[in-house]
């Protein structure tokens, strides 16, 4: 069994790493990581805008965003990917690589999730900070920019890392639209070998485990660091942070 696994790795490591590239699109682990990084990089600014809109008193702003958040919380990602596969080419009017479709879907999905994280971070600060900034004459947006967001975003860094881990796990769902990622590469290997499915999927699980575990550790260590740094200032309500943790730490 172990020798099978070593043999598979020896024969297929390049496919697992970069897919068919350069004879085909970039795939494998490289595509998985690229997809995740790009998704989070775009989702982050989107999430701040969504969080601010959701916190605003204007129903014109907070209603659509609330609807979007409930939508993404209530509909399986798989369904959203199918929607993306159907809608993205319709909107752009061209055939679009599945990688891009998946990226757009993930940005919307994780953007909505992340906006809840950011909003949670802002709300957890309490009224005092906003009030103090307003009393000094800052505008609402000025207070957000200089007082609230620097703290809230810093405090939610661990949650952002958790969302990143979720994103990596979510990229596996790209298989429904044939995104050439790590899982896709493993399926290809399985189709070629036919006789060693356990070994192939074991390797797949192990690779994801190593990556996600390491990042989760980073999240935990960052969290500790932040808690240490914040010790002495107002302690945050446990209930709030519990809720926040539950939100970001989703199985996928």
């Amino acid at each position: 069994m172990i020798s099978d696994i070593i043999a598979i790795i020896r024969d297929y490591w390049l496919l697992l790493l970069i897919g068919q590239y350069p004879n085909g699109p970039l795939g494998g682990l490289a595509a998985t990581l690229m997809l995740s990084v790009l998704a989070i990089a775009f989702a982050f600014p989107v999430s701040i805008a969504l969080a601010l809109a959701r916190l605003s008193k204007s129903p014109l702003l907070n209603w659509p965003v609330s609807a979007l958040v409930y939508f993404t919380r209530g509909v399986p990602l798989l369904m959203l990917i199918l929607w993306g596969y159907f809608l993205v080419p319709l909107v752009t009017g061209a055939s679009v690589p599945s990688f891009l479709t998946m990226l757009v879907t993930l940005v919307v999905y994780q953007g909505a999730f992340l906006s809840e994280v950011v909003r949670g971070g802002i709300v957890a600060l309490g009224h005092g900070q906003m009030e103090a900034a307003r009393a000094l004459g800052h505008s609402y947006l000025g207070a957000m920019r200089y007082v609230i967001l620097p703290q809230a975003l810093y405090n939610v860094i661990p949650s952002i890392i958790s969302v990143f881990v979720s994103t990596i796990k979510d990229t596996t769902l790209g298989y429904v639209i044939n995104v050439p990622d790590l899982t896709f590469a493993a399926s290809q290997i399985n189709n070629q070998l036919l006789t060693q499915p356990f070994q192939v999927f074991f390797i797949l699980a192990a690779v994801y485990y190593v990556i996600c575990w390491s990042l989760s550790r980073v999240a935990v260590l960052t969290e500790r660091r932040i808690t240490r740094k914040r010790a002495g200032t107002a302690a945050q309500a446990t209930a709030k942070s519990l809720k926040l943790a539950a939100l970001t730490d989703q199985p996928s």
């Binding site: 881990v165 298989y175 899982t183 074991f202 797949l204 994801y208 485990y209 996600c212 996928s252």
Partner: peptide, 17 residues
Amino acid sequence: YHRNVPTLVQLMLWYFG
């Protein structure tokens, strides 16, 4: 294990493996 491996991969490992 269950939190750091994608659920889909866990399912594949069970069913195909």
